[in-house]
Computed example of a mutant assay.
Amino acid sequence: MSERGLKVGVVMDPIADIAYKKDTTLAMLWAAQERGWSLYYLEQEDLFLQNGRAWGRMRDLEAFHDPQRWYRLGEPTSRPLAELDVILMRKDPPVDSHFLNAVHLLGFAEREGVLVVNPTRALLECNEKLFAQQFPQCCVPTTVSCSEPVLRAFHAEHRDVIFKPLDGMGGTGIFHVQPEGRNIGAIIETLSERGQRQIMAQRYIPEIKDGDTRILLVDGEPVPYGLARVPMAGETRGNLAAGGRGVSRELTDRDYWLIEQVTPMIREKGLMFVGLDVIGDYITEINVTSPTCVREIDDQRGTDIAGLLMDAIQRRLPH
Results as ranks from 00 to 15, higher is better:
L216Q: 04
E260I: 09
A228P: 15
A242F: 03
V230R: 06
D219N: 15
V230H: 04
V247A: 08
A233H: 14
R249N: 06
R237A: 04
E235M: 08
V247H: 03
L240T: 03
G243L: 00
P224S: 02
I259Y: 07
V223Y: 13
G238Y: 03
I259G: 03
R229T: 07
P224C: 02
T236D: 12
V262N: 04
S248E: 08
R254D: 11
Y225R: 08
A233W: 03
G244T: 03
T263R: 07
V247L: 13
A233Y: 08
E235W: 06
P222K: 09
Y256N: 12
G234I: 14
T236K: 13
N239W: 00
Y225L: 01
D255L: 09
A233G: 11
N239D: 09
G220C: 05
R249K: 11
G244D: 02
V230D: 10
Y225I: 00
T263E: 06
P222G: 00
G234Y: 09
I215K: 11
R229G: 10
V262T: 12
D255T: 04
R245H: 13
V218K: 11
W257Q: 15
G243V: 03
G234C: 13
L216I: 05
I259C: 02
L216Y: 12
P264F: 12
P224I: 01
D219S: 15
M232V: 14
P222Y: 01
V247T: 06
G220Q: 10
A233Q: 13
Y225H: 14
D219F: 13
I259H: 06
D253N: 10
N239Y: 00
P224R: 02
Y256F: 08
A228W: 02
G220P: 12
L258G: 11
R254E: 10
P224A: 00
V262P: 00
L216H: 13
L258E: 05
V230N: 01
S248I: 00
A241S: 10
D253T: 14
R237G: 06
T236C: 09
D255P: 14
G243N: 09
W257C: 12
G234D: 11
E260N: 14
Q261F: 09
G243E: 06
A233M: 05
V230Q: 01
P264G: 09
D253E: 15
R245E: 12
L258Y: 01
R245P: 07
V218Y: 14
A242R: 10
D255Q: 11
Y225E: 01
L251W: 02
Q261H: 12
G234F: 08
G234V: 02
P231T: 07
